[in-house]
Each structure stands twice: as structure tokens, then as C-alpha cells.
Design a protein around this nucleic acid. Structure first.
Length: 488
DNA sequence: TTAGGGTTAG
């Protein structure tokens, strides 16, 4: 469309650039650009924008920026295209910085610019900046624009300000599938699963249309509640809708079944997928790991490596190491970590991987080795690593290491009641009653309280929540009988 | 010509 009436050369360049954008073909795109320069062709504004988009899609941010910088006069479309490139590639600071430069150049942002720039308003500073942008948006009466509004509510939700997100959502005069999904997902991502489902129910009654993204978000909320029956209903509904294959939705189903404890269903979905992403593999590996199925984890990881179609990432290795640790396969886990250190997996170990190794050694009762490993780590150990070791010291009654680790933990996180309890129990185990009492006194002094652990169960599509020794629920006897049957 | 929602871990 844009090519009409602008000459053959324009049409040719337009066609070539669009093909390069589609295929993310950097080299070919660069050759098209070079041809324009060699033949002294002055590209139309449209083609310059396409060049920015092309370089952005090919991850060549410097080249994209050069196209922008070389323009003698920049209009709002150029600026927005470049801000969008930064934003989509995760360069939030650069996106906001360019937005400021745009304002300084007296170019007025439009609804496209606001929609784009709000995606980069993350983190404390980004959020503060986003709030100022919100004021500006209100002044320009763009806050009820469906695209701008969706980006605004997402910014608030990502900052944990769900009430403000909801206000923006409710104030939208018209809601579409994206804005509805954004608010449902906002609740789900903050762990407000019941609220997410309630809103989904309400919006459905009001005639909302759902698509595969909506169902993926709803499944996230159901996973958080471990609501298997409702999850099955959503799955059946999705099947009845005959939606085309979407890897994201299938990944959500794998995760939902795994979090609800049904690994057989998860694996069935995984096996039947015509294509998988690294997240599909990770969801399945995490499922096995969390259920202590070390053998399945290692077997699936081998399959992934043998297939050689999907590269493992940091989460893959975390899941594998975690699975080995919880599945009693410490030697295999240590070997895999060793391969990581040699660079054979293409993933550089970070502190969380080191933490898994501490956990591997701790759970295997190799307390002294775990202690030495922590001391040699190239990272400053956090409460997570010390915490794994303290638990192991308690289980394996290692008072010497445990005392050091426990004291260290009380310094790092004095508000964590669990550490006081474990240290006190450790002293008690060793017959050091005075020290055990002292730790309990310290707990009282600091007003630290241990919350009772909670568990929940789904009966007839209703979730019932309990804490230890809780008999206040009207149906507790029924639940108790079920738990007894399940040996929980 | 530039725009919004999604899946794994923590």
C-alpha cells in the first residue's frame, strides 16, 4: 500500500525490506541498505522506519539507532519506532532516555509512543517515571484509549499496584480481549489467583471473548490454587473451541497439570506437542523436579540434549540440579554442575545454580563439603545457601557447622522465624538446652513469630484451606479422612 | 511508517 505512486525503486526496496523483516535476515537487509547508499537513493520516511524495524528485529540496535541519528528531521514515527526497538529488546533505560530526548526536541508523543514507552516503565525508577507519564496522558485525554490504557494497567500491575491497575481497567470505556487478559494476568502474576478467576468469571458473564493468551493466564491462576478439576474444565473447553496449536497455551497446560500433581497428563501433552520451546522442556523438568522424580528429570534432560533442537537455558539447569537434589541423585547432579563449569551446556552458572549444589550436598548429608563449597563460591552467599545448609545441619545433627551457619542467618535475616526455630531445635538435639532457650528468648525479644504452615484441598470444585491442628472448618472430618486415605 | 495481553524458575 505504502509503495503506490512512489516509483519502481521504492517498490523494490519496500518489498525486499519487508521480506528481510519477516525472516529477520540481517545480512540481506544490510545489503539492501548499502544499495540505497551506493546508488545515492534518498529513502522515503517509510523506508527509513522499515530499516529501524529491520535492524531492531535482528538485534542490531546500534544500526537501528544510526538510521535514526542520521535523519536531519525526525518525526514522531521515527522516534516511536526506535523507542519500540529498545523496549521490545529489554533496553528499558535506553527507551526512556530516548523518550526524554524526543520531548526535548519538541516532538509531541502520540498514542503509539505512550503505548510503547509504558512497557519500559519497570523497576522503582521506571515506575516513578511511568506515573509522570500517566499524568501527561491524562492531560491529553489519552487514558481511555484502549492501547494506552492496557499498557498503563500493565505497568501498575507489574509494579504490584493492582488496585491502580484495576482502576485504569474499569475506567476504560471499551474493553477488549487484550485489556481483559492484561488485568486477569496482572492478578495471577501477583499470586492473587482467586481474584483473577473471579474477574475472569465476571468478564465472561459480561460477554468477554477469550483467546489462547487469556486461557494461559487463567491456567496460571488455577495452577497457583492447584485446582485440578477446574483446570481440566478449562482444558476441555479449550479442546472444544478447536483453537489452533499455541505452544504457550500447551506450556501452561503442562504446568497446570504438574502443579496439580498430575504428571502423567503433563507428559502426555508434552509428548504430543508438534513443536516445543525451551519453556515446554523447562515446565516438564520443573514438574518432575518438584515431585522428587530425579530419574525422570535426568532422562528428559538427556533427551533434550540428544534431540539437540532446543538449547537449554539457565532455568533448565536449575530444574535439573534441583531435581537431582530432591530426587536423591547427588552424584549425577554434581557431574552436571561440573559440565556446566566446563562450559559444555552453554549456560554460565549463577548464584542459584551454586545454591542448588549446596542443596545437593546438604541433602546428601555431606555437610562439611557443602560448607567448604559455600566458602569457595565466587558469589557472596545469601540466606538461601545458608538456609539449605542449616536444614542439613539439623537433620544430620552437625552442631559445629550448624551453630556458625545459624548465627550467620540470624544476622542476615533477623525477621525469619524459621531460622530461630531450626537453630533452637539443633541446640536442643545436642542437649544444649540453655542455648536453645536463649534462641527462643531472642525470638520473643525481636517479636518474631512463626506462622503455622498451611495446606489446602479441593473437594467438589471448592478449595478448603487448613493450618496445623486446625479443626475449625465445618467439613474438617471429611477432609481429614481424605488426607488419611492419601497418606498425607 | 510507529502501539497493548501470554507459558518455565526465583
Amino acid at each position: 500500500m505504502a509503495a503506490r505512486g512512489l516509483g519502481m525503486k521504492f517498490e523494490g526496496y519496500d518489498m525486499l525490506l519487508n521480506a528481510c523483516i519477516k525472516k529477520r535476515a540481517f545480512r540481506e537487509g544490510q545489503r539492501v541498505h548499502a544499495h540505497m547508499i551506493k546508488t545515492r537513493y534518498l529513502p522515503h520516511v517509510y523506508l527509513r522506519t522499515r530499516l529501524i524495524i529491520l535492524y531492531g528485529k535482528c538485534d542490531r540496535l546500534r544500526d537501528a539507532r544510526n538510521v535514526l541519528d542520521e535523519m536531519p528531521e525526525k518525526n514522531v514515527v521515527y522516534w516511536t519506532a526506535m523507542i519500540s526497538v529498545y523496549s521490545q529488546r529489554g533496553f528499558a533505560f535506553e527507551a526512556l532516555d530516548l523518550f526524554v530526548q524526543m520531548l526535548r526536541s519538541d516532538t509531541k508523543p502520540n498514542e503509539f509512543t505512550f503505548t510503547t514507552v509504558l512497557c519500559s516503565c519497570t523497576g522503582t525508577l521506571g515506575f516513578e517515571f511511568g506515573r509522570q507519564i500517566h499524568s501527561n496522558i491524562i492531560k491529553r485525554t489519552l487514558d481511555t484509549h484502549i492501547f494506552v490504557g492496557s499498557s498503563l494497567l500493565e505497568m501498575y500491575a507489574k509494579a504490584g499496584r493492582i488496585h491502580e491497575a484495576r482502576e485504569v481497567f474499569e475506567s476504560l470505556p471499551e474493553k477488549d480481549v487484550v485489556s481483559c487478559t492484561a488485568i486477569i494476568s496482572g492478578y495471577a502474576q501477583l499470586g492473587l489467583d482467586a481474584e483473577a478467576l473471579e474477574l475472569f468469571r465476571r468478564l465472561n458473564l459480561e460477554g468477554m471473548t477469550s483467546n489462547f493468551v487469556t486461557y494461559a493466564s487463567v491456567l496460571t491462576a488455577l495452577s497457583g490454587l492447584a485446582a485440578l478439576e477446574l483446570g481440566k474444565q478449562v482444558h476441555n473447553h479449550v479442546l472444544r473451541c478447536n483453537l489452533p496449536f499455541h505452544v504457550v497455551l500447551q506450556n501452561s497446560l503442562i504446568d497446570m497439570y504438574s502443579k496439580c500433581g498430575n504428571l502423567i497428563y503433563s507428559r502426555r501433552i508434552f509428548d504430543n506437542m508438534p513443536e516445543r520451546t525451551v519453556i515446554s522442556w523447562n515446565a516438564m523438568l520443573v514438574g518432575y523436579s518438584k515431585h522428587g522424580m530425579g530419574g525422570e528429570v535426568v532422562e528428559l534432560y538427556k533427551l533434550m540434549r540428544n534431540e539437540n533442537k532446543t538449547k537449554p537455558d539457565s532455568v533448565t539447569l536449575l530444574a535439573v540440579l534441583y531435581g537431582c537434589s530432591h530426587g536423591g541423585m547427588e552424584d549425577v547432579g554434581l557431574k552436571i554442575f561440573d559440565e556446566m563449569m566446563k562450559g559444555n551446556d552453554g549456560v554460565e552458572p549463577d548464584i542459584e545454580h551454586y545454591g542448588c549444589v549446596v542443596d545437593l550436598l546438604s541433602r546428601a548429608g555431606r555437610v562439611e563439603e557443602a560448607f567448604e563449597f559455600i566458602k569457595r563460591m565466587p558469589f557472596e552467599p545469601t540466606a538461601a545457601e545458608w538456609g539449605s545448609l542449616l536444614g542439613a545441619c539439623r537433620v544430620h545433627s552437625n552442631i559445629d557447622v550448624g551453630e556458625f551457619v545459624g548465627r550467620r542467618l540470624l544476622e542476615i535475616e533477623p525477621e525469619n522465624a524459621g531460622n530461630y526455630v531450626i537453630l533452637s531445635n539443633l541446640y536442643a538435639c545436642a542437649g544444649r538446652w540453655e542455648d536453645a532457650g536463649m534462641v527462643r528468648d531472642l525470638m520473643m525479644e525481636k517479636a518474631v513469630k512463626k506462622d503455622p504452615g498451611r495446606s489446602w484441598i479441593e473437594i467438589d470444585q471448592t478449595l478448603h484451606s487448613f493450618h496445623a491442628s486446625d479443626r475449625s472448618h465445618p467439613r474438617w472430618e471429611e477432609v481429614f479422612a481424605i488426607l488419611k486415605k492419601l497418606s498425607i
